[in-house]
Design a protein around this nucleic acid. Structure first.
Lengths: 272, 272
DNA sequence: CGAATCCATACCTCCAGAGTATCGATTCCC
DNA sequence: GGGAATCGATACTCTGGAGGTATGGATTCG
């Protein structure tokens, strides 16, 4: 199968309308119709159920949409990683989620003989996987069990307990330590991708800090984020808080020399 | 990037010779040279270091070879799974490695409303991953920790200890049970993909049974394989043998209705 | 130094992918 | 119920680019 045909197919499958799909692809509708017909003929499978009024996916079409999307992203990922191969490494992470290791890792890596420039790409919550899959990034710092890691290889770097982050004026802010029970009535934020819990939806950490400062929510964050809190916020240890593990992840089948060296540097910097 | 260009690139990268690669692709050498040049120009990267006598991969070329291969297999996998979507499900497994569950799973699945025909593809040792990745199979029965599962989703079905498989004439064949220490001096087979251990290389289970019957080797196999042993072989429990876990695995992003139903059936059949 | 090897260039051919115009079927709405 | 609108398929024309052949130019080898 040709990737052009697949791209056309995905466009039609997403729009469920040949005209709109053609516009999106920047071509006219008739060649698009013909290309899809030809794809169906070559594969020996009908992909769309079409009447003159509406288009819908067949079972086979659904399968091709899922798997085909993955194949196309693999293709563009290959292209992107090739283009920066040997000159640049892109590390992606959520803000303040490096467990305090980032600087040390970068220094350690810079000393390696196969070191190249490292771009640190600060991303939104839950975006690391997408960036890795699409080849925008070579490696990602992420956290178990919060971040999804399906399909990546990874090395664990450090495990630390969560701690409560509160407005300085909060009734619990001056306590030496807390337990989860102390936080029972508090409003926790709603993380994207998780089921709504009544709390405010949080997209990035700046937003979160602001919401905490305003008293709208409190959060349980890895203890190491204390280095990044503003003066209006306080962090209090929670003795029985869950732990999370910081890990460095990469696309399984991308293991260039600079990337391998970077991972090695990261692992070396991790406390044992 | 176009998949045709990528296929051409991979051919050249594997042959490191434009003429041979062109022959393999069934085209003439000049159009191949031109396509690669064009690919390099479009990507803004040199992929090959060429003198008039030899061709070698640049760093960028190596990256594209690895990642591009993966993208191409994803493409053909998408195609294959689409072609049999909704009509057929292919399950792959090593011979006798179903833990005695296969028949039950197939019966259970046949009762499901979205059931389709299931082809059971008996494969060689270590081939399940390849078959899944290339889209030849939809699901695989495999065993932790022996089989490699990188990049697949899976559900565990059952855990059982290994037992010793010996020729009936072996000095230990009549014992009620053994310990690992009893087997210390015995010659174990050399599994493909593992480091050589002096034992005979084993590619499939028929071969293994024959080698055991001949007294050339003995094996530690999951206890459930006892149902498949010939009369010249004996199985003896080993009290401190390692365990292995049977699991059903599938390509992460292929989850058609029939496949989902099959996995559910398999999980339901597993002893809890 | 001639022969062999191997990639690049020049030039030609032809098909497939893209465009325009239009048809035919269904749906919508007055 | 009939005219307009929507939307995919068909008929046709055109052109860019993929592929072929012939050959050049550089290196290696005997």
């Amino acid at each position: 199968m040709d990737s052009r045909e697949l791209r056309y197919f995905v466009a039609v499958a997403e729009e469920l309308n040949f005209g709109r799909a053609a516009t999106r692809l920047g071509i006219a509708q008739p060649p698009l119709s013909r290309t899809i017909q030809q794809l169906e003929r070559r594969m020996g499978v009908t992909l769309f159920e079409r009447t003159s009024r509406q288009v819908s996916l067949t079972t086979a079409g659904e399968v091709l949409l899922h798997e085909g999307r993955r194949a196309l992203t693999a293709l563009t990922a290959a292209e992107r990683r090739t283009q920066r191969a040997g000159t640049r490494l892109v590390l992606t992470m959520k803000p303040h989620s490096d467990g305090g290791l980032l600087e040390k890792i970068l220094t350690e890596y810079a000393a390696s003989p196969s070191a190249v420039e490292v771009d640190v790409h600060i991303c939104g919550i839950g975006e690391q996987g997408k960036l890795l899959r699409e080849g925008e990034a070579d490696a990602a710092l992420l956290r178990f069990p919060h971040d999804d890691t399906e399909g990546f290889a990874y090395e664990e770097l450090l495990t630390e307990p969560d701690a409560a982050v509160l407005p300085r004026t909060h009734r619990l802010a001056d306590r030496e330590s807390l337990t989860m029970a102390d936080l029972a009535g508090e409003q926790l934020p709603h993380w994207p991708g998780n089921p709504p819990n009544g709390g405010p939806l949080v997209r990035d950490s700046g937003q979160l800090q602001q919401l905490i400062a305003l008293g709208r929510t409190i959060a349980l964050l890895p203890a190491s984020t204390r280095h990044h809190l503003g003066p209006e916020l306080a962090q209090v240890p929670v003795t029985d808080a869950p732990t999370s593990t910081l890990a460095i992840a990469w696309a399984e089948d991308s293991r260039s020399r600079p990337l391998a060296a970077f991972i090695q540097a990261a692992v070396q910097c991790a406390p044992r």
